[in-house]
Design a protein around this nucleic acid. Structure first.
Lengths: 330, 330
DNA sequence: TTGTATGCGTTATCAT
DNA sequence: ATGATAACGCATACAA
């Protein structure tokens, strides 16, 4: 690899002048600039990012933490982040937390070591108090997941509204016996809290009572969905509709329903969440809440880069639209 | 961030001694080692990878190039690579080529700049002659995709056998009119070549003629699959079975078939490729060729790290098992 | 066994 | 407008 010294030697200039040309500094004559440019061309010179990094420059690398890349929601999110970053000359370092607090912290350390300029967290496993100290080493942006104070820039969706729209849709379809799945616990704190609120609000407005037996917590996968349906089948008093926390859980429910010759939506109406590709693959096609992954990724990168260029930018929260997509499962 | 100098100062030793302790060098007295260790602990010291990198050390970062991360085949592959790498203390830098030659090269440049120790290519867009020069800057390993000489370590599957198994299965089910989809072109070179061979071999063995009208090239997505089915419907002489290059194309075919009230497998038997999660979600469930993504990722990382530790290791090709999974679509 | 000095490639500081 | 030099944090050749 050619270095700046090689360019300096070949062009007959000093390293400083070469550096000035590279970084578009003023005070370099057109004549010498040409000389340097020509030498760079000739040697196929590219600045060594490692050396720049050591000098405290930006790394033009953004880290992204996802819980699991095989979850389509996150792979689509990463996709849009990677594309947006590449367009702006940034690279993307990816890590899966596997929902593991320790792994999350291990990755945040990259910030400390200036391996990445900033990190986009798409899920947050540790309490914010644990994560906060890392913000002094670089920018942290929350995308999708969030905390309840404005401590970091956030790109988020109105999850409360998402759940509200889904439940309201079921009520309008005439359902009164509505089950509810969440990826979190059904409590006032922690994951899924906002969706729970939307659920409660819609139920209240419709004057229908929440049946605690029809609340399923900690549901994530297709397999989980299948089990949920089996549990419902064993009930004397069954719900006529179910709102799920993800398209995958909904998929499990629909697949298992078919095994038991249950008709959807006649016997059970199903609403998903995310609008992943499987929503259109399922038969019947899935009514779901669309989360605009593309917009989220794009926006996250945009805000992250603004933040890197101007670290004392005021912390803001950006909310993106969320919408109900009605298909055949309701 | 604490530096090696801070540790040296606090422990009252020289930077060299500290460095020796960090790197587990011999010739450092137990007494001083303790001292250094204590200071490191106290300062929460971690070596700065950037500085190490600049010194020409390994970066403990592996790059992975995938064509598209949203393709489940690749997201599962990346998943296993990331997990295997993390276990061994390596980070994973991800890039999508989007099947773009230029973007692929841009990413290979990371090798030149010692941003990554090695790159795992899961698809190869440029000709090998273009890529080859980069091997002198770091290790390149081919996983999934491959070239036809032993120019780099390869982790691959016997694609010929995969296609052969699928076609043979259809023949055994009594089919004679078999259509064939490929992601590449149906020629002797380039992508999909090996699968084409397996297809031809199986057809020949069964003494059934290949109908060129039933060959669909450059098929990748669910949307492509839908179009394929529409094209088949317009034919006077329709195939009774179809072998596809991916579960996604198969999914498109099955979904579209349903729209036209075609029964699967009665009216059309369908074989996929990959054994992605949708294979089990589709109704009917998809008969497909299983590619062991987990094993591929794991093995790739293992070989890559061996290679980094011993760069003059002989170049070898590792072939992993591929198998037919029979479900309901045939 | 330990320490001093040097260099990796870059950019910032300070002269000129 | 240009250049010499120091510094970023680390590991190593060499000296002691």
């Amino acid at each position: 690899m050619a270095t700046i010294s090689d360019v300096a030697k070949l062009s007959g200039q000093s390293k400083t002048t070469v550096s000035r040309v590279i970084n578009n500094h003023p005070y370099v004559s057109e004549e010498k600039r040409e000389l340097v440019l020509k030498a760079m061309e000739e040697l196929g010179y590219t600045p060594n990012p490692t050396a720049r990094r050591l000098r405290g420059q930006l790394t033009t690398t953004i880290g992204v933490i996802v819980p699991r890349i095989v979850n389509p929601f996150f792979s689509y999110l990463v996709n849009s982040i990677e594309n947006a970053a590449y367009q702006r000359g940034y690279q993307v370092l990816i890590a899966q937390s596997n929902e593991d607090k320790e792994k999350e912290l291990a990755f945040l350390n990259l910030l400390k070591n200036k391996q990445v300029d900033g990190i986009i967290m798409t899920s947050i496993e540790n309490d914010w108090e644990i994560i906060e100290p890392y913000t002094k080493y670089g920018s942290i942006l929350l995308c999708n997941d969030y905390v309840n104070q404005e401590v970091a820039p956030m790109i988020r969706l109105d999850q409360t509204k998402g759940a509200y729209l889904g439940i309201k849709h079921l009520v309008e379809k005439g359902h009164q016996k509505i089950a509810y799945c969440t990826g979190g616990l059904f409590d006032a704190h922690g994951r899924g809290r906002d969706r729970n609120l939307g659920f409660q609000k819609a139920m209240q407005e419709a004057n229908v009572k929440i049946n605690p037996r029809w609340i399923f917590v900690d549901q994530h996968t297709i397999e989980d969905g299948k089990i949920v349906l089996k549990q419902i089948l064993e009930m004397d008093d069954r719900p006529t509709a179910i709102f799920t926390g993800s398209d995958e859980v909904a998929a499990g429910i629909i697949i298992e329903a078919k095994e038991h010759s249950l008709s959807i939506p006649q016997d059970l109406a199903v609403v998903g969440f995310d609008d992943q590709p499987i929503a259109e693959i399922l038969d019947p096609k899935l009514t779901t809440i669309r989360q605009p992954m593309d917009q989220m990724g794009e926006k996250s990168v945009k805000v992250m880069i603004e933040l890197l260029e101007n670290p004392k930018m005021p912390i803001k929260t950006y909310e993106l639209p969320i919408e109900l997509i009605v298909r055949q499962s309701t």
